[in-house]
Design a binder for these strands. Structure first.
Length: 107
DNA sequence: GCAGTGACTAGTA
DNA sequence: ATACTAGCCACTG
């Protein structure tokens, strides 16, 4: 197991602190981790299946309350399903407009 | 060491 | 409401 940068570890830790049925935006994590929002996205992208179990990366979405598309968009659908299965409210546009589902409130 | 890239955000038109 | 621009920080080649 490779040693990840403290920043990455912090990002993963924050993501792991997100309670069940709640979501958080990249900007919030970036602020808490003390880095730019791109780093958070990169850190999440570095999360490979099986490499870092226990990290609810699916609860990390963009400030628009939508699930960002990445790669082929396959993980995107899974993320949507997972969040829906956790009881997260999605509106007809497929985004979390309910502040109650946001961990620290919508930015 | 420099350049390119990336699951972003906020501001402006 | 959408479209474009600038800023942001870390990783890879």
């Amino acid at each position: 197991m490779k040693k990840l940068s403290p920043l990455y570890q912090r990002i993963y830790d924050i993501a792991g602190q997100v309670p069940y049925g709640k979501v958080i935006s990249y900007g919030q994590i970036a602020r808490m981790a003390g880095c730019g929002p791109r780093v958070v996205g990169y850190a999440m992208a570095a999360l490979k299946s099986g490499s870092h179990p226990g990290i609810p990366w699916q609860r990390v979405i963009n400030s628009q309350g939508k699930v960002s598309v990445h790669g082929d968009g396959v993980g995107n659908a899974m993320q949507f399903e997972l969040l829906k299965g956790e009881g997260v409210s999605f509106d007809v546009e497929g985004r979390v407009n309910d502040p109650a589902c946001w961990w620290m409130g919508k930015p």
